[in-house]
Structures are given as C-alpha cells and as structure tokens.
Design a protein around this nucleic acid. Sequence first.
DNA 1: GCGACAG
DNA 2: ATCTTGTCGC
Length: 235
Amino acid sequence: MKKNNFLEDLKKIQYSLRKKLILEDKINIDKIRYIAGCDLTFLNPFSNPCRGIGVILVFDFKTWKIVDKTYSIDIVNMPYIPGFLAFREAPLILSAYKKLKIKPDVLIVDGHGIAHPRKMGIASHIGATLEIPTIGCAKKLLYGKHEELPLEKGSYVPLYDEKTKEILGYVLRSRKKVTPIYISPGNYLTPLTALEIVKKSLKGYRLPEPTRLAHLYCNSIRKELLNKEKFGKLF
DNA sequence: GCGACAG
DNA sequence: ATCTTGTCGC
C-alpha cells in the first residue's frame, strides 16, 4: 500500500470536480447585483481537530450595503496541507452559504481559484460544488509565474502557467506600495473578468471589500464566542 | 534531489 | 490561520 494514498484520493476528487469548471463568463459585470465575500477563522488553528467559524457577507454591488450575512461553526478535522486547502475550509463555507436568504451573483473567496497545481484551488472547489461564479483572491502565491510588478497602485501583470503558457489570473497592486494580491477565476468567469470585478471591489484597502469585511466579521464572531465561554467558566 | 508551499 | 503594543514610514 502507498503511504500517501490519502492525498491521492483527494487529488481524484479534485480532478473529478475540475470537470465541472467552466472558465467562461456566465455573468455580465454590468448586471451584477449582489457580490459576496467569505472567510474563516479558527479557535485553535494548531490543534486538530479544532473549531472553525466560516462566514459569508453579501453586498449590494452598487451601494455596498450589506444585504445578508451568515456564519457556521463546526469542528474541523482536516489539517492544512498546501494544495488541499479546500478540504479544510470549504465545508464551513458551504454550510454558511446554505443559510443565505439572498444568494450572490458572484462570490470572492480568500484563496486561489485555478492558480493551483491542479487548477482546483478553494475558489474553484466551491464554485464547482455550488455551480456558481466564484473568484479566488489570495494574499500569497501558490502556483504560477509572473513578471515584476510596477509599484504604482492599480498596476497588474498576468499570472501564467509556465508549462502550458496559459493565463491563470493576475497579480494586482491594489494599493501604492503594498505586496500584491493574486486573482484568479474560480468558476464561470475568465481571468480578465475576475480582475475587473476585484478592481471594482477595492475601497482603499489592500483587500477587496467583500473579503476584507468578511474577515472582520469572522473576528467579531470569534471574540463574541470566546467571551461567552469565558463567562460560562465563572460558574 | 531540492525547494516551494493559499489558509 | 492564533497569541500580541507600540511604532516607524509613506
């Protein structure tokens, strides 16, 4: 028996899910009404199992008012393994997504889309599973090559697969001198459309508003939960 | 064989 | 990804 049969099985799931990817524009950027961002936080990230909190925030793409928000808390058994992030984090996102009363036209995920060794980053994983448009927006590079990026705000260069020469996404300098963010389509979008949507979602911070606020929402729920449990211990 | 490696 | 304050630079 092979030692890493476990990861081989997970790869098979990724290859299977990849068949559901459609990297074409299934939505028109001018017709987007609701856009969402999601994120996770953990209570004890270095232990497994540990508890995780997954949130989704839905915004009106025009006014940027929050129109819906949900979260889900559960035990997470899967550890973080580069290339397999979705198996650790996607379940909580999917759970939170089910609770939404208003489903977004597109979902921005904290992580990569097709900028992944098997073109199945967490954004693609979620997009393929739910069959919805998704965008991967990561803070660090996982896979792909790109040229040097100019220092000015708004500059970007393509992120490509060195093997196939195909464009996976874009590296974007979302603010003046900050380290860039990595944008790639998850599902139902082209790399260029993913870039344009993220650019339209920037509100003066390094991260696009949906992802940025989802992260803050995560932290507030986390703090609230810790307070409750501390209070419980007093009795 | 070695380095790289989202959250 | 968590625990943590002030502080330096643009």
